[in-house]
Nucleic acid binder design. Structure first.
Lengths: 197, 197
DNA sequence: AATATAAGTAAGTGATTACTTATGAAAAAA
DNA sequence: TTTTTTCATAAGTAATCACTTACTTATATT
């Protein structure tokens, strides 16, 4: 195998991890299987990541930059809150569908190993999402788009069920999910709640 | 170890499994650790369950009888739909809190081993829950308690996020959950949705 | 009391796990 | 060109996994 520097190898390893999880399941994510997938020796993996868990943590960091930060950018845009909320929902739903429930699988990994570091990371991501949505909803209330009688915390909790539900149904091999209309339907439903509270 | 018949041992084994999952995590659920917890030899486990997976499947069956069937009984009671809905939510939330997110942990097990039988079982339980709620909401619409403009499927999906969220937050060691008021708050929020759609 | 059966154990099985060590070779720096 | 550093590998490591085997013992039935 031709030599490559650590950065390139780290990218390859992370990509291979996601492929294995999506196609074979978490239990098949052994360092042996991982090395085989890339075409490297098993030992080489440990040159680029000190521990197997560090690969998972690096992937979680990628979720932060690929999904959370993009949602954050939209949340700060100069546009009406309802437009921003819709865009944020789209980013999240598209990311989940593109990555086939990868974040809930990472949750499963955290639950499986009862790993407090991993649990904390997942918890932080969920909290960040909540905070972003909370701010946009508050902003929509000041813009007088939505009722000022709504309990923002309750509504955000209700909202969070949508992506989590989607993740779980993807993992459980749900058929017949109309991906195209999903975002619009959920946004319409959620708008009603925000207006009519 | 004194001899006991299979029924008693099966109960002991199932209880020990739940204790290990709750206190040590799924990864510590080895047949060795399980036997040690009960005070039996490892081989004795396999006299009472053919495979380790069969223990998990038996526990899922218990979830059905302990939670789903009780919800079903309430759903069929002769009472206004809103009263029934509230009682069902309470049964579910109490069960989740009492069993510390056990069903989402079983979901994690299914996801981890990519086990189609287990996945199917979890999916069936979620589907059954949805069906029960759907019927009660429809009943509430005929009783003219709630708006007939609501899309029942969407609302049920939104509802399902509540228990799933609760499960996940329990696994991720959320602090400061006001368990007492949780049910009432969520029911109030959900009632508004059903009335104002 | 003799016998059959169910429930128990100790000590394995091979497979797999994450990770290490010793060694060598390619690439980069001197 | 020589030296140094980085990356790769083959071949380990001890630990753990679900599960089995061979055998023993308690209990229920005849």
């Amino acid at each position: 195998m031709k030599k490559q520097n650590t950065e390139i190898r780290q990218q390859q390893i992370k990509r291979a991890v996601l492929e294995i999880i999506a196609s074979e399941g978490l239990a098949q994510l052994s360092t042996r299987n991982l090395a085989k997938k890339i075409g490297l020796s098993e030992g080489a993996i440990f040159r680029h990541f000190k521990r197997k868990q560090d690969i998972i943590l690096a992937i979680i960091q990628d979720i932060r930059t690929d999904m959370l930060e993009r949602m954050c950018v939209v949340a700060r845009q100069d546009a009406p809150a309802d437009k921003r909320l819709f865009k944020m929902m789209c980013i999240q739903v598209k990311y989940i569908l593109k990555n086939e429930g990868i974040n809930i699988l990472l949750f499963s990994e955290a639950a499986h190993y009862n790993d407090s570091v991993l649990k904390r990371e997942i918890h932080d991501i969920l909290s960040s999402q909540k905070k972003i949505f909370k701010d946009v909803i508050k902003s929509g209330i000041s813009e007088e788009l939505w009722s000022d009688r709504i309990n923002v915390d309750d509504v955000v909790m209700l909202y969070m069920g949508i992506p989590i539900n989607l993740n779980i149904e993807l993992v459980l091999n749900r058929k017949g999910l109309k991906t195209e209309s999903f975002c619009k339907r959920m946004f319409a439903l959620f708008s009603n709640i925000l207006i009519n509270q």
